[in-house]
Write a protein that binds this DNA or RNA. Structure first.
Lengths: 132, 132
DNA sequence: ACTATATTTCGTCAGATGACGAAATGAAAA
DNA sequence: TTTTCATTTCGTCATCTGACGAAATATAGT
């Protein structure tokens, strides 16, 4: 029950579902996820820790960046949960938009992205769809 | 996304998972569910409405009682979610205990059960495993 | 129609959750 | 070794959630 609940609670948030869909094909570092979701990095970090606790993502460090991806080793419950999420959200509008943005964001090396994020500090806070 | 989130939010609570596991093989009326979970009937009613909103249960009225069961018609997302929950919790201790209690509770007609619940009013509130 | 009663709705409260910015951490670069 | 900086942790706040009992609703049997 404990594992099952950890998984369902981790999945019960739109931002976390978006993260799963974002890293399912290509790993992404935190700053890339921050850019796509449009939340503060502290917020994204917390979401990632919840997903990781549930076993739904894993990460490794490379240089200054931490890359998140779906775990190689997955319990039966986790595999099935991930499969369910992916099938359920494949055609979601939100996810499609994220994919567009994600392609754009992940083309750039984190190094470049971070520079751009710095430049945008002070932009209108409500501007979620800023061009990069 | 809306449907997916409704489902994951509905599943992100232990009592609601227990309800799904309880009604998956045999329908149950509210008072039977109340007896097994040990919550107030208003609380259980709220849980049932959340499950119903997500399409995870359905109900019909018979006599004075409302019976809840898994829905006949299920969206792809709902079918897969229910399958996932059942597989994940089949061997859970909590669920096994519920099954024992459930067999005991559901042997009785709701009419009898309600009488017994009345008799137990005023029992120790913390006594969750009372004999019936 | 009236009464009894199974379930839901309402109002309220305590605790959980998600958001942010500031400060801490710790690994790489200088 | 010191500095830089990507990420996490901490502290705070507003909102959401789950719990309960009381009141409302609706149905069955008299």
């Amino acid at each position: 029950m404990k594992e099952t609940l950890a998984i369902t609670k981790a999945l019960a948030d739109e931002n976390r579902l978006r993260i799963i869909m974002m890293v399912k094909d290509n790993e992404a570092c935190v700053c890339q996820i921050v850019e796509v979701l449009g939340n503060a990095s502290s917020t994204v970090s917390k979401h990632l820790s919840i997903l990781k606790y549930a076993g739904l993502v894993d990460c490794y460090k490379q240089g200054r960046w931490i890359y998140y991806h779906l775990p190689q080793e997955r319990s039966k419950a986790v595999s099935a949960a991930i499969r369910w999420v992916v099938e359920s959200l494949e055609d979601s509008i939100v996810i499609q938009k994220d994919r567009v943005k994600s392609r754009c964001v992940c083309e750039q090396e984190p190094e470049e992205l971070i520079k751009i994020q710095r430049d945008h500090k002070g932009d209108n806070e409500n501007e979620k769809t800023r061009n990069i």
